[in-house]
Design a protein around this nucleic acid. Structure first.
Lengths: 342, 342
DNA sequence: ATCGCCGGGACGAAAAAGGTCCATATTCGC
DNA sequence: GCGAATATGGACCTTTTTCGTCCCGGCGAT
């Protein structure tokens, strides 16, 4: 069954939505007994008109009966609801995950794709696709879009396609070099995204492993500070989320810092900051670009990450409290929800 | 799987169509390798614009890739097609039945609902619903609609609903009393249909079991002949189909006639006429109303019947050659198709 | 008798879908 | 190397559908 649903979700995503909508309506009518159009519209958060359309349809299908006193479910309708129960559970499963996470952390939107990115590369691709779709949805015209590095963001970049809504945009790295390998660096991702969408990009070339004073002088440089100002004009950022220790290792963070991170209980990493399980910042990578206060003042912070192993890290970033949209997968979402209830 | 599809069909009837359409497109692209929009539109019998909409959608879903040299299926697309194979078989099964019957008998439309009316009352209801939908589709405004009796037609009547397209219509019995029980008589059905839809009706009260001369004098009667003229104004008729012997028994046809019917190899009955397997008329019930030449000149003759046992009877009526639309069920359709190939 | 809620009709605004044509890029055959 | 053929993507207009909004008459409870 899940199989069929996944197929259909790919082949007709919006029909699944209307299926859910109609199921919800029918169920509401069943539990309400006899109910009027306006009342029902109110309790379902729909306008009267669209509900009316749906009701007309359900009536034509013989799933409900309409009398002058209101509408009532028919026998076929009741029968349909019964036989649909397992299907509905499946249908709303992910939705429920999304809603629980969204409400708990007060997010604008949560998108959960089925599967586990740790296990299946297909899920990771799905995650990228969903991330790309979300970005396309929330971006305004001719905006500056800050992006971070990482394999997930690379996947997002891969799934972006040329579209008018992104044509005039500027992709920029959220922060400078963070010790990633070239193909996963924010610079690379930003330029890939720009090329994929037909947008423009500007890069921030900051060498890794510089001393403190070298950084200070870099910051003084006119072209560097100009691009940093440009980056800070971004009102939207899309970023990956990593497990703190994994990231520290991958980025070859020095022994002492790694030990301190471990001691302090670092859970997560995002845009070069390390967070503990409560979402408090423990450490900041030595580079330039968006500061934490810039992130906090963003309109739309989009986090994209999945895989069961990243569940805790994602939860930690959500605790930080400045995310607006989360794109994740079923495994991570389940993990997060489990943490909430325990 | 079939279960799920049937559920979904109730909640979104065009889901199947859309799914089939997109599947077909994707499959065509796969077998074509790289193909252009116009070429594809041609071979799929779609307008370019509609195909373009679908292709844009499939691209957004990441199921195909578009290059300036044409479109090609993506890995996800290929994977989707593979995993859809059993589903597609299911999807197109009924359609194939419909098409084969439609083409063989040169009909306007064939509708096959899943199941077997002999076995499942739910299928019979489905048949009624489908019949009602077909009637609503083909009826013009303010028309005279001739109907026959029978349990299937009763089911159709039950599933008709009030709709503007039927408001001004007149329902009339195709022929007078045919010896059915009251609730299955054409008169009853016609009035039920009218009441259900908010249309009008006129009835033809002809007593059963009258002698020949009594009929002749009835025909002379002004009110009777007036209503018969009214009935003959019908350009659309919807009727059931019965097995000859079953109908003869139910209508208590006299011994001699029954024997003669059996001797002549009567297979089917419809609107009071009995047909042999080649669709030749063997016998005519003694009543008034539509004559066979009226039927032959109809614009839209809609036959509704299902159940494995009726397969042969339906085929016989189709041989008669004056049906335009057939509504049946899977069991009967399979039976008919088997007869064709043997 | 009145009030509140019911379904349903009507109508215009807005959005989506569809038909048609054209500009530009790429490929293939010569 | 070059032109013909075919590709996509953009643009524009018409048609159709959807949606918001308001109103009417009916019915039942108060």
């Amino acid at each position: 069954m899940k199989e069929i649903l996944n197929i259909q979700k790919q082949l007709l995503p919006d029909l699944i939505d209307t299926m859910k909508k109609r199921y919800t309506i029918l169920q509401h009518i069943m539990v309400s007994g006899v109910v009027g159009r306006r009342t029902l519209a109110g309790s379902l958060n729909m306008t009267e008109r669209v509900l009316r359309g749906e009701v007309d349809f359900l009536k034509a299908q013989g799933l409900l009966e309409i009398e002058s006193s209101g509408m009532r479910i028919s026998d076929s309708g009741r029968h349909l609801l019964e036989s649909m129960e397992p299907l509905a559970k499946e249908l709303f499963g992910l939705n429920e995950l999304e809603e629980r996470i969204r409400l708990h952390f007060g997010l604008k939107q949560v998108v959960v794709v089925p599967g586990d990115s740790d296990v299946s590369s297909h899920t990771k691709k799905e995650l990228g696709r969903a991330g790309a779709a979300v970005l396309r949805k929330y971006v305004a015209h001719n905006e500056v879009i800050a992006v971070t590095g990482g394999s997930t963001m690379a996947e997002v970049a891969y799934h972006l396609t040329s579209s008018t809504s992104l044509k005039g945009s500027w992709f920029v790295p959220a922060r400078g070099g963070l010790g990633e390998s070239v193909e996963l660096q924010a610079n690379t991702i930003a330029s890939t995204m720009a090329k994929k969408t037909g947008a423009s990009y500007r890069l921030l070339h900051v060498p890794d492993h510089l001393g403190e004073e070298a950084y200070q002088s870099l910051m003084q440089d006119a072209t560097i500070s100009e691009i940093i100002d440009f980056i800070r004009r971004a009102r939207i950022v899309i970023h990956g989320i990593g497990e703190a220790m994994v990231m520290a290792r991958r980025r070859k963070v020095d022994e002492a810092t790694t030990a301190s991170l471990r001691a302090d209980g670092a859970y997560a990493e995002a845009f070069g900051y390390y967070f503990d399980r409560k979402g408090e910042i423990l450490h900041k990578m030595p580079t330039v670009g968006l500061r934490i206060e810039d992130i906090q003042q963003m309109d739309r912070v989009i986090g994209v990450a999945g895989g069961k192993s990243k569940g805790e890290a994602i939860a930690s970033i959500l605790q930080f409290g400045h995310e607006d949209i989360l794109v994740t997968d079923e495994a991570a979402a389940t993990e997060i929800v489990n943490m909430l209830s325990s």
